[in-house]
């Protein structure tokens, strides 16, 4: 496994999480939800939605750089780590404590990512032996 993959994934997670956080801030700011023109304008005129736009652009560029090298299947699965980071943000910033199944699911996802990392390590080792 190349050294920069984890760094790329960290950037991806950071941008994805920041994007979701911005969405939540925007939604809160724009309340009440009444699907009116004024509501749309409240969304478009608050600073958080622009943080989201920039974050998602950052996430997209990071993803395109990662995809140059990493296999899309395992990488897409690993990018679900954002569920856990968003859970932390929900808890500490928005006071939405995780339920038992959220914590359980997070642990299962972490196990999955662990095995994906192990898989990459083994593949790299096999490649070394062939070379």
């Amino acid at each position: 496994m190349k050294k920069y993959y984890p760094i790329g994934f960290l950037f991806l997670l950071f941008f994805d999480t920041l994007g979701q956080t911005g969405f939540k801030f925007s939604a809160n700011y724009a309340e009440p939800v009444n699907y009116s023109f004024a509501w749309v304008m409240r969304i478009l005129t608050n600073k958080w939605i622009y943080m989201t736009c920039i974050s998602y652009l950052g996430a997209f560029l990071t993803w395109m750089i990662l995809l140059k090298k990493v296999p899309v299947g395992p990488a897409f699965a690993a990018s679900r780590l954002q569920i856990i980071t968003v859970m932390f943000v929900s808890h500490y910033i928005f006071n939405e404590p995780p339920k038992l199944n959220h914590i359980l699911g997070a642990i299962v996802i972490l196990c999955g990512v662990f095995f994906l990392a192990l898989a990459e390590k083994k593949l790299a080792k096999n490649k070394e032996q062939i070379d």
Binding site: P74, A78, I83, N101, I109, C111, F115, A117, L118, A119
Partner: peptide, 23 residues
């Protein structure tokens, strides 16, 4: 992209985890 045992296991666990969070 090689589907090694650990890769399939990892992807399967992540899918299961996402479902558990979703419940």
């Amino acid at each position: 992209e090689k589907l090694t045992f650990f890769r399939v296991l990892g992807v399967g666990l992540i899918t299961a985890g996402v479902i558990i969070v979703g419940i």
